[in-house]
Amino acid sequence: MASPKEILQRRAQRVRRQVKAVANGRLRLSVHRSNMNIYVQIIDDLHSRTVASASTLDKELRSSLKGGANVEAATAVGKLIAERAKAAGVKDVVFDRGAYIYHGRIKALADAAREGGLSF
């Protein structure tokens, strides 16, 4: 029987494989969530590099947030990644939620990134 960690890794690989199949050259907006923080990166898979990143650990956000593991923090990170993507010239991305279900913090981050100007 597979361990819970292996199950999550398989789910993340399955989602990532589907996302890359429909990407058509677009960059990938990858999300990682922990119990304390939330992290997001815009990744160029063709050139294997990170174009922009944001997290609740950034100095800009850390002082203004109560904690890094709530919907408010995810919304702030979503807005920040949208600003940094605009600065890098990125407009269209595909959303890679990893092994996480699309609700709560993940949904709040995605909605804030859309409001900030990213389209996916």
Rank of each mutant, 00 (worst) to 15 (best):
Leu118Arg: 11
Phe120Glu: 00
His103Glu: 12
Asp111His: 04
Ser64His: 06
Lys5Ser: 12
Asp58Pro: 04
Ala54Glu: 10
Val15Cys: 07
Leu57Gln: 15
Glu60Tyr: 03
Ala108Lys: 12
Val94Trp: 03
Phe120Gly: 14
Glu60His: 03
Ser53Pro: 00
Val51His: 05
Thr50Cys: 06
Arg11Gln: 15
Met1Trp: 04
Val93Tyr: 03
Asp44Arg: 06
Ser48Trp: 06
Ala21Thr: 05
Lys59Thr: 10
Ile42Ala: 02
Asp111Asn: 11
Arg16Asp: 11
Arg28Gly: 03
Ala52Gly: 03
Leu118His: 02
Ala99Ser: 13
Phe95Ile: 07
Ala73Ser: 12
Lys91Arg: 14
Val31Asp: 03
Ala82Gln: 08
Asn24Thr: 06
Val40Ala: 15
Ala69Ile: 03
Lys5Ala: 11
Lys66Pro: 03
Asn35Tyr: 02
Leu57Met: 15
Asn37Ser: 10
Ile43Ala: 01
Asp45Trp: 04
Ala12Ile: 01
Ser119Glu: 10
Arg97Asp: 06
Val93His: 07
Gln18Asn: 15
Asp92Lys: 15
Tyr100Trp: 02
Glu72Trp: 01
Ala23Tyr: 01
Met36Cys: 10
Met1Glu: 09
Ser48Leu: 11
Ala52Leu: 05
Met1Phe: 09
Lys86Ser: 04
Ala74Val: 11
Lys86Tyr: 00
Phe95Gln: 05
Ala69Arg: 07
Ala2Glu: 14
Val90Arg: 08
Arg16Glu: 13
Ala73Val: 05
Arg105Gln: 14
Ala21Leu: 14
Gly67Asp: 05
Ser63Pro: 00
Leu118Phe: 02
Leu80Asp: 12
Gly98Asp: 08
Val90Lys: 04
Leu8Lys: 14
Val19Leu: 10
Gly89Arg: 09
Leu61Pro: 08
Val90Asp: 08
Val31Tyr: 00
Val15Tyr: 05
Glu6Asp: 13
Ala85Phe: 02
Ile38His: 07
Asp45Ser: 02
Ser3Glu: 14
Arg84Asn: 12
Asp44Gln: 05
Gly68Asn: 01
Arg11Leu: 15
Asp44Ile: 00
Ser63Ile: 05
Arg26Trp: 00
Met1Gly: 11
Lys66Ala: 09
Arg33Pro: 00
Gly78Phe: 11
Ala73Leu: 06
Ile81Asn: 03
His32Pro: 02
Ala52Gln: 09
Ala110Ser: 12
Asn70Val: 02
Asp45Met: 05
Leu27Gly: 00
Leu27Ile: 06
Arg33Cys: 10
Tyr39Phe: 14
Asp92Thr: 11
Ala82His: 07
Tyr102Ala: 08
Asp44Cys: 00
Arg84Lys: 15
Met1Tyr: 08
Ile7Asp: 03
Ala87Val: 06
Thr50Tyr: 11
